[in-house]
Design a protein around this nucleic acid. Structure first.
Lengths: 202, 202
DNA sequence: GCAAATTAATGATTTATTCAAG
DNA sequence: CTTGAATAAATCATTAATTTGC
């Protein structure tokens, strides 16, 4: 239940903010992300990711990488779940092909949308601006900044194959938690390539 | 599988903005990269990639992404070659699944040099090879500018106060890649996450 | 009612596959 | 054919849920 973010790793005496290594979406953030995902636009473009991140930043710690990863994972998971769930609807095919890619440890992800809307983070709530609903701005017909980025969500697209809708996907990456501990050995890079490169330093 | 692989370079009108020609390493760049690769330190850390890129930029067009990709491809390619060769040379009679296309479990990486990015935990121990970052000497014999930028990496990782370090101004974050005004929407994300993010509730 | 131990979810990274430019 | 670039699949590692014993 109440999963308080009571991390003992808080700033002790000289310890720093390096508390958790992996981002955990706040309920609000999650809600927004879910909404966006449902709009069915696949992985947002970088531009959108950035803006989404900016928006979500108002509700807690988050980064573009987090957003990107979230969409990636979300999509992959959805797809797999679909497969696992076996298409027992319209298909009269055998179900012996969808599952068994390899059973090592992959559990049948029955991952349901656990939308724990309970306010867990006290901090979060504290920082909640008087306009809590602001997070939904872009989701609503009011159209905020984020809304502009997702114009194609007409809502009438009740597609069933929301897994194959990606336009692209980044391989972004970034150092992982190691950095926080000072390691930073992970080597991952984004592909800035686009604007940054051609024509710049060259 | 069924990815459409939409060409992200075209605009809606089908008009290309900037032909995306793929980067081609110049001989000098290639030489340096090869040398670095041979130093055998796996994929360089983000920091190093940055510096390498900076250095290589002086010899032609290049980006961090290019460098990163290059290392990635290089490693994969090498591995595959080795596997292939081994398969041919080794037993040509008993084919007991010498190498399935999906055998990561077997840790094929061990055949290579250290994999500095896979096993390190947040513990501040220095059990890992302390000389991991010796890859800086890649250009040793000539010692060009690059050499100068990689001197201070040795043993730094051994520090156990890693968690105390707070001045990792790694926050770089591709500042402007964002202006892909006409480029493509294929975005990529940077590595902000590390420093920039986790600071949350603190 | 808590807290250590376990399990389930899931964020983050790596690897393999594929596509296409030269 | 070589290989840089892009995507998806698989894997890893950590956090949250849940269970269990006190």
């Amino acid at each position: 239940m109440g999963n308080l973010y009571c991390d003992p790793l808080m700033t002790s005496t000289g310890h720093k903010i390096t508390a958790r290594q992996r981002w955990t979406p706040t309920p609000v953030q999650l809600q927004i992300l879910e909404r966006l995902f449902e709009q069915g636009n696949g992985t947002p473009s970088k531009q959108k990711i950035k803006e989404i991140t900016t928006e979500l930043s108002q509700h807690g710690q988050i980064s573009e990488t987090n957003v990107y990863n979230w969409f990636q994972n979300r999509r992959a998971r959805s797809k797999r779940k679909q497969q696992n769930a076996a298409c027992n609807h319209a298909e009269s095919e055998v179900e012996t092909e969808v599952d068994s890619p390899k059973d090592k440890k992959t559990r049948p992800e029955e991952t349901f949308q656990s939308q724990q809307h309970s306010a867990q983070r006290t901090e979060d709530l504290c920082f909640q601006s008087p306009e809590i609903s602001s997070d939904l701005h872009f989701l609503d017909p009011h159209a905020t900044a984020v809304d502009k980025m997702f114009p194609s969500h007409s809502g009438l697209r009740s597609s069933r194959h929301l897994s194959e809708m990606s336009f692209y996907d980044e391989v972004l990456a970034n150092s992982r938690h190691e950095l926080m501990t000072g390691k930073m050995e992970a080597g991952n890079y984004s592909l800035f390539q686009e604007a940054e490169d051609y024509g710049m330093t060259g």
